[in-house]
Simulated scan of single mutants.
Amino acid sequence: MSLLSTHGLTAHYGDFQALFGVDIRVEPGEAVAIIGANGAGKTTLMRSIAGVLRSAPGEVVFRGREIGALDAAAVMGAGLAMVPEGRRLFPSLSVEENLQIGCYGRKAPGPWSLDAIYDLFPILGERRHAPGTALSGGQQQMVAIGRALISNPDLLLCDEISLGLAPVVIRDIYAAVPRIREAGASLVVVEQDIGQALKVADRVYCMMEGRVTLEGTPDTLSREAIHDAYFGVSA
């Protein structure tokens, strides 16, 4: 049984349809990357899985349970957590207080605690009492990842975690991915950076205009196939 699967998933913003019958799956222990240009539907897919956007119950299945109609709090309680695009820290709270917000959705005891987060990202321990918004963009992203991890999810959804960050900061953040996986979490990573996505993922889905246009493993997908799926034109 797949850890997560979507079945003909659709999503709308009012009268505008953003997803058209999307089918993806994530196996236990797997890292899956979702790539595509701006407007491809990647963030909408993450929001639909996380319960921010509601769908029909059977369109999202997690551990064999239909969760498509659940709200975000119930989805988090089931064992999923999302690192949203733009980090979305609470400006009135310190780094440590922002991290502790994730504890309220904790599914069960697990490997991630405040001390474990500070071990993963030592700079956050050093700045635990600073306002969350006083940190650099990369450090704020670490807080957002830590806030999601501290709920001890079975599946971590990461939406554009490298967006707007310097290459050296992106390297440091992605260096944490192996430890996250070793602790038992599967991942779905949304990325515009194709090279970064191929480095971190066991499998890749490419999206364009709300549809999946390509699926495969990094070692079987050619540059030409990815180019065509990403842009919808021949190389």
Score class of each variant (00 low, 15 high):
residue 211 R to E: 11
residue 67 I to H: 08
residue 83 V to C: 00
residue 234 S to F: 15
residue 50 A to L: 09
residue 198 L to K: 05
residue 110 G to P: 08
residue 101 I to W: 05
residue 220 T to Q: 13
residue 17 Q to E: 14
residue 229 A to M: 09
residue 207 M to E: 04
residue 60 V to G: 01
residue 157 L to R: 11
residue 71 D to C: 10
residue 49 I to A: 01
residue 87 R to F: 06
residue 25 R to L: 15
residue 28 P to L: 14
residue 208 M to D: 13
residue 156 L to Q: 03
residue 25 R to W: 14
residue 173 I to Y: 03
residue 52 V to I: 15
residue 83 V to H: 01
residue 37 A to E: 15
residue 84 P to Q: 03
residue 64 G to L: 10
residue 154 D to Y: 09
residue 84 P to M: 02
residue 67 I to V: 15
residue 78 A to L: 08
residue 134 A to N: 13
residue 111 P to H: 05
residue 209 E to P: 07
residue 199 K to L: 11
residue 137 G to D: 05
residue 138 G to H: 05
residue 85 E to Y: 02
residue 158 C to Q: 10
residue 127 R to L: 11
residue 145 I to Q: 00
residue 38 N to Q: 12
residue 75 V to W: 00
residue 216 G to Y: 02
residue 29 G to K: 12
residue 119 D to I: 00
residue 131 P to G: 12
residue 104 Y to N: 11
residue 93 L to Y: 07
residue 191 E to C: 07
residue 167 P to W: 05
residue 59 E to Q: 15
residue 59 E to W: 04
residue 175 A to D: 09
residue 13 Y to Q: 10
residue 47 R to H: 13
residue 44 T to D: 03
residue 110 G to S: 04
residue 191 E to N: 10
residue 16 F to V: 15
residue 172 D to R: 13
residue 229 A to G: 07
residue 85 E to G: 07
residue 12 H to Q: 13
residue 52 V to W: 02
residue 175 A to E: 14
residue 92 S to W: 12
residue 39 G to N: 11
residue 160 E to N: 00
residue 198 L to M: 13
residue 46 M to I: 11
residue 35 I to L: 11
residue 204 V to G: 08
residue 22 V to G: 05
residue 42 K to E: 04
residue 13 Y to G: 12
residue 149 L to Y: 00
residue 57 P to I: 01
residue 200 V to M: 10
residue 144 A to C: 06
residue 44 T to W: 10
residue 173 I to L: 09
residue 97 E to Y: 04
residue 81 A to D: 04
residue 92 S to K: 13
residue 147 R to L: 02
residue 65 R to T: 14
residue 126 E to K: 14
residue 195 G to C: 06
residue 138 G to P: 03
residue 52 V to S: 08
residue 198 L to A: 14
residue 103 C to Q: 14
residue 157 L to W: 02
residue 186 S to I: 06
residue 32 V to C: 05
residue 45 L to Q: 01
residue 206 C to I: 11
residue 122 P to L: 09
residue 65 R to L: 12
residue 218 P to R: 02
residue 178 P to V: 06
residue 215 E to L: 07
residue 83 V to E: 00
residue 128 R to W: 01
residue 161 I to M: 09
residue 101 I to H: 07
residue 216 G to I: 07
residue 19 L to F: 09
residue 88 R to E: 15
residue 148 A to M: 06
residue 121 F to A: 04
residue 105 G to M: 04
residue 34 I to L: 14
residue 25 R to V: 14
residue 135 L to Y: 11
residue 146 G to M: 00
residue 147 R to N: 01
residue 194 I to G: 07
residue 88 R to N: 10
residue 109 P to L: 06
residue 122 P to A: 05
residue 41 G to L: 07
residue 41 G to R: 05
residue 115 D to W: 06
residue 66 E to W: 03
residue 171 R to P: 02
residue 125 G to K: 07
residue 55 S to R: 06
residue 96 E to N: 09
residue 226 I to F: 02
residue 145 I to G: 01
residue 9 L to T: 06
residue 191 E to F: 00
residue 56 A to L: 14
residue 175 A to L: 12
residue 183 A to R: 05
residue 56 A to P: 04
residue 161 I to Y: 01
residue 139 Q to W: 07
residue 138 G to C: 06
residue 10 T to Y: 13
residue 167 P to E: 02
residue 192 Q to T: 08
